[in-house]
């Protein structure tokens, strides 16, 4: 009887080798990126993946694998993903539509809206909406920005060339390098606050 119990308990025991497949991988992604893919604020901001463009999503995972995009955590995470798994994850997250994570500071949203819709011609900053869409949903390799975590967008725009487009391979992230460079800190914060609230 005791032995039977011991076996039963053992079978229930959580273990590192026990979970496989797409469902287990999704649960793993969502421990950091939020239970509905809405993003999460840990020590680092974990970006929203919900509603993300699949082509962008897959490009970024490949960029982590090929070290074109530097991120110590995501390099390891992406390294073990098969191409089929990457496609399955991209399709799953595309279909999610939770409310924005929130936590963007109030106040600067008006300026953000103006920059997003009209750009800053005198500073050579094009309108974000020209590529990312008026609703911020993105298209193809151009990411969705709507509902993105404020801290994440600020961090990316401020450190663009340090974390993206590494190595010699051609990378679509180069498009954003001059624009991110031409934005001041307060303009970055205004745009990030604006897109954080877009549904």
């Amino acid at each position: 009887m005791a032995a039977a119990c011991a076996v039963a308990v053992r079978a229930e025991e959580p273990g590192v080798a026990a979970r496989h497949g797409v469902e287990a991988k999704l649960e793993y992604c969502k421990t950091c990126h939020g239970l509905s893919g809405q993003g999460y604020r840990g020590y680092f901001p974990m970006p929203r993946l919900a509603g993300q463009q699949p082509q962008y999503f897959e490009n970024q995972l490949r960029a982590f694998i090929e070290r074109r995009r530097s991120n110590p955590i995501m390099a390891n995470v992406a390294h073990v993903l098969s191409p089929a798994m990457i496609s399955a994850l991209a399709a799953h997250f595309k279909a999610l539509d939770p409310k924005p994570f929130g936590s963007a500071p109030h106040g600067s949203s008006e300026l953000g809206k103006r920059i997003y819709e009209d750009g800053i011609p005198e500073a050579n900053v094009p309108a974000c909406s020209a590529c990312h869409g008026a609703d911020g949903k993105g298209q193809n390799e151009i990411p969705r920005l709507a509902g993105q975590l404020y801290d994440y967008t600020v961090g990316q725009l401020e450190g663009w060339s340090k974390v993206r487009g590494q190595g010699s391979a051609v990378d679509t992230s180069a498009i954003m390098a001059p624009t991110s460079h031409n934005l001041t800190k307060s303009q970055v914060e205004a745009v990030a606050a604006y897109v954080a609230r877009l549904q």
């Binding site: 979970r19 649960e27 680092f44 390294h79």
Partner: peptide
Amino acid sequence: PEANVASCYACH
């Protein structure tokens, strides 16, 4: 990563 154990570092 291969066993779906998340990094603690990302949050802590």
